[in-house]
């Protein structure tokens, strides 16, 4: 255990050094189109991840997927080891999201509903970078593509290309000064943009105002508080196996949960499902399993909205729903490998 801790620490330190090296020599990365060495890739991802956590920034974030454009005002603060976020949707019904580390409150002021969640995975450091797992290098390569201006700032453009057809590629614009991601495009198999999220304006280095997050999180009077019920579960103990894993994807979490309806009176909606999450370090796939019920599960379907694919089908006495930002074939591979033995 101690060994493992030490080695992760060493990794973090090593990656930290690389990060500094890149930061101090911004001109070092050219516009060449050859993939970077694994340690360089990791250093870039560390830098990007680090900036997202440790910088204070504020701006307008725009997501365009499936023909729908959504935008929000975002403020992110880091005080010591704590992270704070305030997100206010600018489209549709007013919605405010507050995050303090792994606690997330989503408020709908009009309907006076507050969703209070504990999202353990938000606060954790990505395991892949932490343990020196080279899965990202095995399944993706990173190619610097020069410098472009984005949201009023100079950005390094990086192409994260999948080495097989089980995942999508990404084009990243990382702020030259800080490494903060200014824009991300999810690229389909033919290089087409499936989805893009970007800051349309951004100020980095704003004054941290943690109270602007903490105070609203404490003031929930008058709100109907909804807490998702989640309990840890084990995929194999539930009787399930993946006959054949999907290369690169490893199980990172498995929970039993109630999928509540989106509206207060949507009672029929509360279904017990088993949700298992597989990650390849960059993207994740959720496998939902619930008992098959002909009344609720009329037919199999496949939907694609932006980069998000959804596959629903019956497997024996069960109904499975797979969701992930991966090609549909990858979801099928998961679905075909599912087996119940009990």
């Amino acid at each position: 255990m101690l060994n493992r801790l030490l080695s992760s620490l060493a990794m973090v330190l090593a990656a930290g050094c690389c990060t500094t090296a890149i930061a101090s020599q911004p001109g070092a990365v050219g516009a060449g189109d050859s993939p970077l060495a694994p340690h360089e890739t990791r250093a870039w991802l560390m830098r990007i991840h680090d900036a997202a956590s440790h910088r204070n920034f504020q701006g307008t974030f725009v997501v365009s997927a499936g023909g729908v454009v959504s935008s929000s005002r975002i403020a992110h603060f880091c005080v010591g080891a704590s992270q704070f976020e305030r997100i206010e949707s600018l489209d549709g019904q007013m919605r405010r999201v507050f995050r303090h580390n792994d606690v997330v409150h989503t408020l709908w002021p009009r309907s006076r509903v507050a969703l209070v969640e504990q999202r353990d995975m938000l606060a954790t450091f990505p395991a892949l970078l932490q343990t020196g797992d080279d899965r990202i290098d095995t399944y993706y390569d990173l190619r610097p593509q020069g410098v472009e201006r984005m949201a009023g700032r100079d950005a390094d453009v990086l192409l994260l290309r999948p080495k097989d057809n089980r995942r999508y590629g990404y084009r990243l614009w990382a702020d030259r000064g800080t490494g903060l991601l200014l824009r991300v495009e999810v690229l389909g198999e033919r290089g087409e943009v499936l989805e893009s999220s970007a800051f349309s304006d951004l100020t980095i280095g704003v004054k941290a105002q943690p109270d602007s997050v903490l105070l609203p999180m404490k003031k929930l009077d008058g709100y109907r508080i909804v807490r998702p019920s989640l309990t840890a579960a084990r995929f194999d103990a539930e009787g399930w196996t993946l006959r054949e894993g999907v290369p690169g994807f490893e199980q990172v979490s498995c929970v039993r949960r109630l999928l509540a309806g989106m509206t207060a009176d949507d009672d029929d909606a509360a279904t017990q499902v088993l949700q298992t999450i597989y990650s390849d370090g960059l993207t994740h796939v959720s496998v939902f399993i619930e008992p098959y019920n002909p009344a609720r599960h009329p037919r199999g379907m496949h939907a694609a909205i932006g980069a998000t694919q959804t596959l629903m089908r019956r497997v024996g006495d069960w109904w499975v729903t797979l969701v992930g930002d991966v090609p549909a074939a990858t979801l099928r591979q998961f679905a075909n490998a599912l087996e119940y033995r009990k």
């Binding site: 991802l45 997202a52 956590s53 995975m121 990505p126 892949l128 991300v184 999220s197 990650s279 959720s286």
Partner: peptide
């Protein structure tokens, strides 16, 4: 809900 687990970080 599990979107934070990406190596690209929170954003």
């Amino acid at each position: 809900q599990f979107g934070g687990s990406s190596a690209l970080g929170v954003p």
